[in-house]
Design a protein around this nucleic acid. Structure first.
Lengths: 360, 360
DNA sequence: TTTGTTAGTGTTTGCGCAAACATGATTGGT
DNA sequence: ACCAATCATGTTTGCGCAAACACTAACAAA
C-alpha cells in the first residue's frame, strides 16, 4: 500500500500464548522500545521491521521478529495514527441498516476493506438532515478516518441535494449527491426498464406501479424509469400507487389494485411490497399470473418461494459494496477525489409471477 | 462519563463554515495550541474546556469556545487515545452480516453506542475458527478499542467452545461461550417452548421440527427445547428435518413432510424456512392450517403477508443490541468483566397458520 | 590512496493531548 | 493584617511511533 515492494509488512505476527489478550489488556503495553531492548537494536529498526521496510538485513529482521513474538508486541495504532495522520480506517455513514440492500452493501464493504487491511467505523445518522450529516462527518474527522462511504438512500428533509464537506475522500451510495462526488449505485433505471419491458413484451396493455416512499432516491428513479418506458412505448401511464417498502403497504396497494378493472400487470418497487400485493390478490380472488402479472425488485432470497415464485429484478449489492471500497481506496492511494458515477447493472430474473394476459 | 458532573463536555461544537470539512482535510490540523494562542490561554485550559472540566471560569470558557469555533477546532482522537489509552470505541466482531437478526442487532448496537458517544469498529471474521477469532481480537487490540461485542452465531470448526482472550471486556451474543463470559441472547429455548406448546394446546398429537443448520447455536437450542417440550408432554418425538435457514431448504423439507402421514403440525426454526414449507405444502395440495399447522421463528416483517399469515415467535433484536452496549459500557465504567447470561424474552405472535387438527 | 556511494542502523524530534505538578490570585477566618 | 485554604490557570512531561537526518562500515570508482 504505502510502502515499497520490499518485505511484506508484519501485520500477522504469529500469535503467542494470549498475545491477543495482551493486546487488549491496557496496562502492560509492549512498546517498540521494549522490543528494541530485547532484540538489541534501536526502536527505529523495530519500526522498520514492523512496517516492512526493505533495508533491514535478514538476520536483524529475524531477531526483531523473535523479540516481537516473545513479548507479544502489537503496534499501537493510536500512536501510529497520531504520527501518520491516518488510521487505515474507512468511515461508513448510514441512515438505516435494516434494509436488505444496505446490510448487504455494508457486509461487502466490511469484507473488502478487511481484505485490504482497513477497518470500518460505523456511524449511524439518526436524522436525515444536513445537520445530521455534518455531525457524522465531523465525528469522522475526529476519528481520523481516511475516507468516508456514505450510504444515503433517502432525501434530506431540509435540503434539495446532498452537500458534503468539500475536499473529503468520499463515495456516496444510492443518492443524487451530484456530479462533484463519486457515486456508486445500482442501475435503478435500467432495472425498472427491464421489468416494464418484460411485461410489455408479454402483451400487457400497460403496467401499473407500486412505488416506494417519496423520500427514497431509488424509489424515485424506478418510478421515473417505469414512466418513461411506458411513454416511450406509447402506452398509457396509470396513476402511481405509493407504498413504504413494507409488505403491509404492498397489501394495501394490492387491495386497491385488485378492484381496478383492466389492471393486468404490476411492477412493484421491491419484493416485500410484491409479497403484500400477492396476498391482496389472493384474498381478492385474483390469481397471479393468470389474472395479473407481477414483477418485483431486489430479488430477496425468498422471492423464489413466494406464491407464485416472483419474477423480479436482481440487485447485486455485494458488487456495489466492493466498488465503493475499491473507489475509496483508489482515492486514498492517489490522494485525490474522483467524481463520477458508477452504475452496477441489474438482471431480470423470470420466475412464475408473469405471463401473457388472458385473451379478452 | 469519565469526568465529574461539571460543565458538559463540548462534543458538539456548533459547526462553523465547512468545519466538518476542515476536520477531514488532513493538512491544516487545528491543534489545541492554535486555539490556545487565539484565546490567549494555555493549551491546558483548552484541554480542560474541551473535556468539560468544572474548574474553568465562565468567561475563560466562553473565550476558548469562541476561539474553537473560529478555527473550526476538533479534538484529534488519535492523540487523545494515545494519551488516555482509550478511543471511546467498541469493536464488533461478526461472522456474517447477512442474517436479519445480526443486522438488526448491529443496528441497535450502533445506535445505542452513538447515543453514548462511542463509535463502532466493525471487523468481520471470515473463517469461524479459533485462529480467525484470535486474529480479529488481535486487530481490535491494535485499534485500541475499549471493549468488544462478539456476535458469534455459529460453532467454531476447530474448537468445542469459544475461547476468548482472558481479561478482555467482551460481550458475546448468541453463543455458548460459557459462564466466564458475559453473554446476551434471545431466549431461544423459551421461544421454541412457546411455539411447541401452542401447537400442542391446539390438540396436535405431536409437532415436527425443521431445524436450522447444525453449526448454529440458535438452531441447536431451538431443537433441544422442541424435543424437551415434546418429551415433557409425553408426546412422541419425530425425526428432525434439517435446513440451512433458507426458504429453499424449507421447501425441500416441506416436500418430504407433505408425504408424511400423520404430520399435522410443524415448527420451523425460522420464518424463511417456514415460507419454503408453505410453498411445498401448497404445491402438494396440503392446506395450512387446515391440514397442517405451521409456526415459524423470528417474526420477519413480511411474515404477516405470507400465505397464510404466519404464526411465529417474535425476537427482539433491538433489545439484544441495546443490552450488549449497556453491558459493555458498564464493564468499561467499572473496569471489570462481568460474567453472566442475559436472556431477552420472545413473544408468540399468533396469526393464521395454526389451528386445531381436523377431527379424524 | 582518496573520494564517493550505498546499505544498514542509530538518534533526535515532535505529532496532539492531558496527567501531574507548580504557580499566582483571591477569599475567609481569626 | 495575617495565614491558610481555595480556585483558576500555566508549565512540564511523556504516551508510542516514524520521519528526518546522522552515522558507520564496506566497497567501488577514480
Amino acid at each position: 500500500m504505502e510502502h515499497e515492494p520490499g518485505q511484506p509488512p508484519v501485520h500477522d505476527l504469529p500469535a503467542t500464548q494470549g498475545g491477543a489478550a495482551a493486546a487488549l489488556r491496557r496496562k502492560p503495553q509492549v512498546s517498540m522500545a521494549d522490543v528494541a531492548k530485547l532484540a538489541g537494536v534501536s526502536s527505529q529498526t523495530v519500526s522498520r521491521v514492523s512496517n516492512g521496510s526493505p533495508d533491514v538485513i535478514e538476520s536483524t529482521r529475524r531477531q526483531v521478529i523473535a523479540a516481537m513474538n516473545e513479548l507479544g508486541y502489537r503496534p499501537n495504532s493510536a500512536a501510529r495514527a497520531l504520527k501518520r495522520g491516518s488510521f487505515r480506517t474507512i468511515g461508513v455513514i448510514t441512515f438505516s441498516l435494516s434494509s436488505l440492500g444496505n446490510m448487504r452493501t455494508l457486509e461487502a464493504i466490511a469484507l473488502n476493506a478487511a481484505r485490504q487491511d482497513f477497518a470500518i467505523t460505523l456511524i449511524p445518522v439518526t436524522a436525515p438532515t444536513q445537520a445530521g450529516i455534518q455531525g457524522a462527518f465531523s465525528r469522522m474527522g475526529e476519528l481520523a478516518v481516511d475516507a468516508v462511504i456514505a450510504i444515503m438512500e433517502v432525501h434530506l428533509l431540509d435540503a434539495a441535494t446532498v452537500t458534503l464537506p468539500p475536499g473529503v475522500k468520499v463515495v456516496v451510495v444510492d443518492s443524487d449527491a451530484g456530479e462533484q462526488y463519486s457515486v456508486v449505485d445500482t442501475d435503478q433505471a435500467d432495472g425498472a426498464r427491464k421489468a416494464v419491458s418484460h411485461l410489455l413484451k408479454l402483451g400487457h396493455e400497460t403496467v401499473w406501479h407500486v412505488a416506494g416512499p417519496e423520500e427514497s432516491f431509488a424509489a424515485e428513479r424506478r418510478a421515473a424509469a417505469w414512466r418513461s418506458t411506458l411513454t416511450a412505448a406509447g402506452k398509457p401511464v396509470p396513476p402511481v400507487l405509493r407504498g413504504d417498502w413494507s409488505a403491509d403497504s404492498g397489501y394495501a396497494a394490492g387491495l386497491r389494485l385488485a378492484d381496478e378493472t383492466g389492471c393486468t400487470a404490476v411492477f412493484a418497487a421491491n419484493d416485500h411490497m410484491a409479497l403484500g400485493l400477492l396476498r391482496a390478490f389472493r384474498e381478492k380472488g385474483k390469481s397471479v399470473p393468470e389474472d395479473i402479472s407481477l414483477v418485483g425488485f431486489d430479488d430477496v432470497p425468498e422471492a423464489s418461494s413466494y406464491a407464485p415464485p416472483l419474477t423480479t429484478v436482481h440487485q447485486n449489492f455485494a458488487d456495489v459494496g466492493n466498488r465503493c471500497v475499491d473507489n475509496v481506496l483508489q482515492q486514498i492511494r492517489t490522494n485525490r477525489t474522483e467524481p463520477g458515477v458508477t452504475l452496477v447493472p441489474t438482471e431480470l430474473v423470470i420466475r412464475a409471477s408473469t405471463a401473457a394476459p388472458k385473451a379478452k
